[in-house]
Amino acid sequence: MKNLLKQKGRKKMPSYLVGPTVILILAMVYGSLGSEYFLDPTSIVFNTGRYIEIGLLALALTFVIINGDIDLSVASMLAASAGVLAKLFAAGVPILWCSLAAVVTGLVLGLINGLIVIKLGLPSLVVTLATLALYRGITQVMLGDSVVADYPESFIGFDQRLIIGGTPGLPAPLALFFVAALIFYFILHRSNYGLLNIMSGSNPSSSKFSGVSVDRVRLTAFAISGLVSGLCAVMITSRLGSTISNVGLGLELLAITVVVLGGTDIFGGRGAISGTIVALFAIMAVRESLVIQDVNGQVQDAAIGILLILTVLIPRIREYTVDKRNRQKRFNEAQSKTVSH
């Protein structure tokens, strides 16, 4: 009896996790067939460094997208923050203050996005398309075609540093990602704000009528997205050791892909941090397993594109067949009723 209760009480895996998990496992298998070193813990841990920025951006974007908005400008905000960091550093400001300034820049740019969207009542897709160009343009004006490098040794190589030593160890970016994921998880699924976030995304007008300050919730999401972009600017500068004006070009599409693959509804109102996390690792595994097979970067992106479409399409097909079966059942019932009459 006790056993039965336990069986019944066991939660099924949420449907949005199925797709990314399957992809993750398949990619792991494929990768380990390609090279015996693929599953080597050290190589796994050190290959994550490049994906952490995408992961952090995706975590922040999850909030924005759950609200029913979208932020296309994340990569440009990242670039502008990195530009501020580089300019200040070139002017002789200590690196710590530069990093702080970069994070603040990100926050301010995110707030600008949010204020334009909310105060002027414009669609976020268009506004962030405009600021995508605008912020990238500001970066280009700031940096021109110059390269800022010569950052102090203590600042660069953040991705190579270990929080926990030994093999495999825990590199700093991965640790940071886990901490961030945990924080975002608690904000979205365990806090008041998260609930308001999901509410205002699923039905903005009724949330407004029940006293939710939808505008403030949306503004906060944009601000978070800006803040995280600023943080990523510091990380990417530390990782690359130099700054140019096209830093992070095209990252926005990758981050949005991660969010959508993780099951967040692009129209808002539904989504989970766990989905975004699993999707990030799935994309990481796909890419790394294809790198081992010496596949071109564009073709790797194409594979991710196919997986993205399949993860959205397959549940639709299932839905469709179930729907059809139910309709057939109802039809049969109605038929038998009329016959019996």
Partner: peptide, 21 residues
Amino acid sequence: GKIPSIIATLGTLAIIRGAVF
């Protein structure tokens, strides 16, 4: 497929570019 166009074409953006290669 009933996939929102922004997702579907985000996918095909990468797929078709891969096809070019």
